[in-house]
Simulated scan of single mutants.
Amino acid sequence: MIALFTGARCGEIAQLRAEDVREQDGIAYFSINDEEGKAVKSKAAIRKVPVHSRLDELGFKDYLKGLPNVWNETHRSGLLLPGIPAPSVRQRPHARLSKWFNEQYRDRFLGGFKAENKSFHTFRRNFIRNSLVSDASETHVLNMVGHQEGEFSTATIHYAPERYTPKQLYNELVKMDYPFLDFTALAAFWREIPKP
């Protein structure tokens, strides 16, 4: 669900901690960052992605309340999705999340994904496509998914590293939804995720 409503990369989601869900000007957002050893693809990948109102409707805030907010490497507490197995030293953060998703959820909830050979990255592509089709600003969408916007953006990143506020991004984000999906069956999803 996080991937579907943020367009975040698999590795970015795997590294998110409960403390990375923050608030600014009344807008909750995911802080995708390189703090405390987390890895990002590029400077543009460091960003604030608002929490879509649909996630709140599905119980995301209640899920958050049940998580420890303290990082503990040994017990993996503090992770936003602590039930995902930790990657080995040689694995990148996305490897285990992708495998976990395929084994736990793809076949169970999304049978067509396997038949069509789709992967976790499909959520990112769908987020981008649906945002643009919903008439969200292209520059805002690029910012939310951690892509650079071109020469102008690259040259000005030193002057305004936070290109858009979470509130500005949220106003674009809520234009996008998936009206063809029935989310009522997924409302209990958060309760199924194992917690420490």
Rank of each mutant, 00 (worst) to 15 (best):
V174W: 02
K61A: 12
V49Y: 03
Q15N: 04
G83A: 06
I32F: 13
L142A: 14
G111W: 07
R124T: 04
E149H: 06
N69S: 04
N102F: 07
V70Q: 15
E73L: 03
G11E: 12
V174N: 15
V141E: 07
A136Q: 09
S53Q: 12
D177N: 15
E103I: 11
A28E: 12
R124E: 06
V133W: 08
D182V: 08
N143V: 08
A136V: 11
R191D: 15
L67Y: 09
G7V: 05
S88G: 05
D34H: 11
D56R: 11
S119L: 09
A39K: 15
E12A: 02
L173D: 04
R191V: 07
V133A: 14
G78V: 07
N171G: 02
P194C: 07
L79K: 09
V141I: 13
E19S: 14
R76Q: 10
D182N: 15
H140F: 10
N72A: 09
E162P: 00
L186E: 07
F127R: 04
A3V: 02
G7H: 03
H75L: 12
W71L: 05
L132W: 02
R76A: 06
H52T: 04
E151D: 15
K167Q: 14
G111H: 10
N102A: 13
L110S: 01
V89I: 11
T139R: 13
T154C: 04
S119D: 11
K43A: 09
V141M: 08
F60T: 12
A28F: 13
P87V: 02
G111I: 03
A155Y: 01
G150S: 08
N171Y: 05
A185T: 03
I32T: 06
F189Y: 15
L181G: 00
